[in-house]
Each structure stands twice: as structure tokens, then as C-alpha cells.
Write a protein that binds this DNA or RNA. Structure first.
Length: 278
DNA sequence: TAATGGTGAGAACTTACATCA
DNA sequence: TATGATGTAAGTTCTCACCAT
């Protein structure tokens, strides 16, 4: 963090933030009220682990703009059969040629046939065109999926099969639902992290401002009273909440006057440590 | 009241990458 | 080590429901 040069006063400001135990809200959202607006936090590195790191940079490291490598298969190929030949070998529901390879491994022959039929029904309308139909899950289906997701956010093939049978869905649909559910959870967590870091940033900015002010006051004091007994600057601390100056024997008696001079390798946490001085 | 356009949610899809046999 | 199969994350596309006009 680049702080303004404080001159040759010998005083130094070091700010840090300790984010210990940031809550990981791993629970799936009930309301699923996911904010769509993506907050631009270019200087944050928000992670979803228990100790999110805060990186405040000045410039440069922006999120790399993703260049969408767009291949519009619908436009690239009008022919459904040709289209099915072009689809990904891993994910295509409606392509029987390639996409079935891995899934059929888990399915009995009857199940494969059943799924094949249901896929045909769902993927093609009366005209035989390959219109994508959007599945609407019933409340019961959603509830069961959510319940299952709470227990484990990923499914093994057997669990997928069982769940699909129970829900009267295709295993692929269950699989997709879990993929999307994980994505939503992660997105929400990222937003929570971003909000948290934003608050941290605001608090640090305030703290910085206060300390700069304190520094100016101390400098003015030093000029006004050249004969005063210099007190180790590090023993002077301003409480961020009550804005009182604490120092001298009080602070010095607690610890070495130089102990706080060393750059602290942690950040000030506005939530766990509202005031380090109090 | 029906038609229409905008928008959000989420299901489905594509691609890239990691892992494993 | 190379290779193919597989699973997952990330990003995108597309459908549908809802709402305002």
C-alpha cells in the first residue's frame, strides 16, 4: 500500500488488516436472491476460503477481460444431425453420437433406452426440430435436490442415478442442476466476500485518514514544543472508535515501546478488533 | 384486455483443464 | 511419457415467467 511520504520526521505509518476467520457461508441459499450486478472490485483478490486475503493495489492488475470464444453452433450448423456431431463429447444431452459415451457407462441398457426416448421427446418438438425445452422443476423436485445438495454438493454416479430415479428426471438433468447449483453457491460466496472486503477497505481508509491526521498533529506539536520530551511515536495510539489518543506510560507499560514499530504482518480487522487500543 | 418488449432466473450447453488408469 | 476417458469449473446461450407499458 503506497502511503504518502511522511517526510523525515522519523515517524512511520504502517497499516495492516488481519482477516482471521472470515465466515464461509457454505450453506446453500434459501432465497437464491443472487445479485446479478457484478461488483467491480479490480483490486481485490477475494477468495472463498476461511481467511480471505485482501490485496489493495493501485492500478494495473485488472481482471483480464475474457474474450468470448464464441462458436454459435445454432448458426454454424442448421442441421440437427450435423449439430449433434459437433457438440462436445462431454456434455451434449441431445447428441446421441458422442455425448452418451460416458453416461451410458453408468446406465443399464433399459435406462439408456429410456433416457434416449425421453431425450428425444424433450429435445424435439412435433416438427422434429431440435428446440431446446426448458425444464421447470416442481417444488418437490427442487426441495429434494436442495436437500441432497446440502448433504453433498457433488454426486457420484450411483447417487445421481438414485436421485434421478426418485425425481423422475434424467441423470444428466440432475448432473446439470448440481453443476449450476455449485456455480450459484460460489457466485454468492464471491459476492459476500466482495462486500466484506469492500467494508474492510472503507475501514482501512478511515483508519489511514485518522492516522495521517494524528501524524500531522504530532508534527505540529513537535514544532511548537522543541524541548518536549519525545515520546516514542509507536506508543501513541488513537482508538479508531473513540478517537482518543492513548500513549505514554499506559501503552508503554504494557509492552516494549518498540514492539509496535515493526511492520505488522497482519491487517486490522474492523469486525473482530474494533479498537486495538481499547 | 391483448400485445409487446425488457429482464431475471435458471436449465442446458461448450470449452478448458485436471486427474487417473 | 503419451493417451483416452472422465469429472468439474467457468463461461455462455437460450427458454420461460413475470412485469411494465
Amino acid at each position: 500500500m503506497g502511503l504518502p511520504d511522511t517526510g523525515n520526521s522519523g515517524l512511520e505509518l504502517v497499516l495492516g488488516l488481519s482477516l482471521s476467520g472470515a465466515e464461509e457461508t457454505n450453506s446453500p441459499s434459501k432465497a437464491d436472491n443472487v445479485l446479478r450486478s457484478t461488483m467491480p472490485c479490480p483490486n481485490f483478490t477475494a477468495t472463498s476460503n476461511s481467511e480471505p486475503s485482501l490485496t489493495l493495489g493501485l492500478s494495473g492488475e485488472r481482471y483480464q477481460a475474457q474474450v468470448p470464444r464464441k462458436v454459435d453452433v445454432n448458426k454454424a450448423c442448421e442441421d440437427p444431425l450435423e449439430l449433434s456431431r459437433q457438440t462436445s463429447p462431454h456434455s451434449a444431452v441431445s447428441s446421441f453420437s458422442n455425448g452418451r459415451v460416458k453416461r451410458e457407462r453408468d446406465l443399464s441398457s433399459e435406462e439408456v433406452e429410456a433416457e434416449r426416448v425421453s431425450s428425444r421427446v424433450s429435445d424435439e418438438d412435433e416438427d422434429g426440430t431440435n428446440a431446446r425445452k426448458k425444464l421447470r422443476l416442481t417444488k418437490e423436485q427442487s426441495a429434494l435436490l436442495e436437500e441432497s445438495f446440502k448433504q453433498h454438493s457433488t454426486l457420484n454416479p450411483k447417487q445421481k442415478q438414485a436421485l434421478a430415479r426418485q425425481l423422475k428426471l434424467r441423470p444428466r438433468q440432475v448432473e446439470v442442476w448440481f453443476q449450476n447449483r455449485r456455480a450459484r453457491t460460489k457466485l454468492k460466496q464471491t459476492e459476500v466476500d466482495c462486500e466484506f472486503l469492500k467494508k474492510c477497505c472503507e475501514t482501512l481508509t478511515d483508519e489511514n485518514r485518522r492516522l495521517q491526521k494524528e501524524l500531522q498533529e504530532l508534527k505540529a506539536l513537535k514544532l511548537a514544543q522543541p524541548m518536549y520530551m519525545p515520546m516514542p511515536a509507536a506508543t501513541l495510539t488513537m482508538c479508531p472508535s473513540c478517537e482518543r489518543l492513548i500513549g505514554g506510560s499506559d501503552a508503554a507499560s504494557k509492552k516494549s515501546p518498540f514492539s509496535s514499530m515493526a511492520p505488522k504482518n497482519h491487517f486490522f480487522s474492523p469486525f473482530t478488533n474494533p479498537s486495538a487500543a481499547c
